[in-house]
Design a protein around this nucleic acid. Structure first.
Length: 152
DNA sequence: GCCAACGTTGGC
DNA sequence: GCCAACGTTGGC
């Protein structure tokens, strides 16, 4: 059982969209490290912090969980998709994804709040220059964030 | 295999 | 829109 932070642009898929759909396939990850997290480490039931990025109010916006093991991201094979990858072949896919089940919205925890918590100082997502869209979260960080979100 | 150029991310 | 930081590409 692991914990993760997964970034989504709310203009694309917000926590509200995810809750409405219940389960979303996490399409479009095109970074090998993030792919490897999904492919090699994620297991059904892992905790997910749903993070809004590239928007007016970046921060943690909800809670979710990993709902499948990994499988090929179908968008890599679709020439009409912005995520199309001409080098990917169905018999040898490059990009994998998992399904994510949205669980609940939280009061938005913004970056200033996250940075103000000494216990969260080592969070990967807060590290300078970090651009990874999926980052590991420790059990202690997870508990701290549930506390900040006032989740019992 | 090096590394400069280029593209992308994402907060501000 | 700016720009720092970082990943990827491709010529050599």
């Amino acid at each position: 059982m692991r914990y993760w932070l997964m970034k989504s642009e709310p203009d694309d898929v917000s926590i509200d969209d995810a809750l409405a759909q219940q389960v979303v396939a996490w399409v479009g990850v095109r970074n090998y490290q993030a792919r490897n997290f999904m492919r090699d480490l994620m297991q059904v039931g892992d905790g997910v912090l749903f993070y809004h990025s590239s928007c007016a109010e970046p921060g943690i916006a909800g809670l979710a969980e990993v709902a499948s093991t990994s499988y090929p991201d179908p968008s890599q094979f679709d020439p009409k998709s912005p995520y199309f990858d001409p080098k990917a072949k169905p018999e040898q896919p490059r990009w994998m994804l998992v399904d994510v089940r949205a669980k609940r919205k939280t009061p938005l925890i913004n970056l200033a709040q996250l940075r103000s918590e000494p216990e969260l100082a080592e969070m990967v997502v807060l590290k300078r220059g970090n651009r990874l869209s999926i980052t590991p979260v420790s059990a202690a960080e997870w508990r701290m964030i549930l506390k900040l979100a006032d989740v019992k």
